[in-house]
């Protein structure tokens, strides 16, 4: 059992899991409090278009997905910055069109592409050293920006109109948030895949939002919870020989159930002592 920690690929997988979990925990918290979950889902799915194009053009998959996701994020930002109420139609559009582009480009690319499923559901055991560097770089950038501009981000997230009136560039913050979501989706492709990444960005944050008193602690708690879920899921996938991405998500969902049960019991105890 302990021998799994000695394998190189397993060590890489665990480091990748932790790095991506913190990216997803931090960005996911911001996405949740800004009510942009559906939007992150749109960006995640549309980045499949980038994967298809990268396959066709013969460029690295992550470069293709990264560029495509960033462009989708900028497009959504531009379309929705004035009319946030119309955001869902645009997201639905970008979601479907991105995936369709991906499928078409895969069709016209000669050869058989057996590993396409791995982009949708993750292949954490195939993480390379350069993937790890990319993940670490993204986490560093996210930490730096969120820490430095925490007050501005907090103001825009809580009340963007008020923030604008106080001279905070809320459009810039909004666009950066979307770009952050796009990049997090791209680095998560290896770990949980682009379909499952939304769960990693929302399940830990759902729990964290309820147990914390500030956005800052919500981000930290989300990151820690996501890391725990990822590592447990990874372990489960190794022991039972399952797809890692799916295991991680199901472990997270189980974690959420446990939270519901524990908080219900806690509330019952609280009421009974009050009586």
């Amino acid at each position: 059992m302990m021998e799994i920690f000695t394998y190189d690929f397993m060590q890489n997988a665990m480091i990748a899991g932790i790095l991506v979990s913190f990216c997803a925990g931090i960005v996911g918290s911001l996405i949740v409090v800004n009510r942009m979950v559906f939007l992150a889902g749109g960006i995640a799915h549309s980045s499949y278009g980038g994967i298809g194009m990268a396959l066709y053009l013969g460029i690295p998959i992550f470069l293709g997905a990264g560029i495509f996701a960033a462009l989708s994020a900028l497009l959504i930002a531009w379309l929705t910055i004035e009319h946030r109420e119309r955001i869902d139609s645009f997201i639905g559009l970008i979601w479907a069109v991105g995936m369709a582009i991906g499928v078409l480009f895969t069709d016209i690319t000669p050869g058989y592409h057996s590993d396409l499923m791995s982009y949708l559901f993750g292949s954490i055991l195939a993480v390379s050293k350069s993937d790890l560097y990319a993940m670490a770089l993204l986490l560093a950038v996210i930490l730096l920006l969120v820490h430095r501009y925490y007050r501005e981000i907090l103001a825009v997230s809580y009340d963007s109109q008020y923030a604008s009136l106080r001279g905070i560039p809320s459009r810039l913050v909004y666009t950066m948030l979307l770009l952050g979501a796009a990049m997090t989706v791209v680095v998560s492709i290896k770990v949980v895949g682009l379909i499952l990444v939304i769960a990693l960005m929302t399940i830990p944050t759902y729990i964290a939002e309820r147990v914390t008193r500030s956005l800052y602690s919500m981000m930290i708690v989300s990151g820690i919870l996501a890391a725990i879920f990822t590592l447990c899921g990874l372990l489960a996938s190794y022991i039972f020989d399952l797809t890692s991405g799916a295991s991680i998500i199901l472990v997270s969902a189980t974690g959420l159930m446990v939270y519901f049960v524990v908080s219900a019991i806690y509330r019952r105890i609280l009421y009974s002592t009050e009586e």
Partner: peptide, 26 residues
């Protein structure tokens, strides 16, 4: 000083009174 209309506030948002009062203050 501006006090917006008291609608559509996200009550689940993890933020304290202190955070709200200091918001956007240069």
């Amino acid at each position: 000083g501006y006090v917006p209309q008291n609608v559509d506030v996200n009550t689940g948002f993890p933020i304290t009174v202190l955070d709200v009062v200091m918001m956007g203050n240069k």
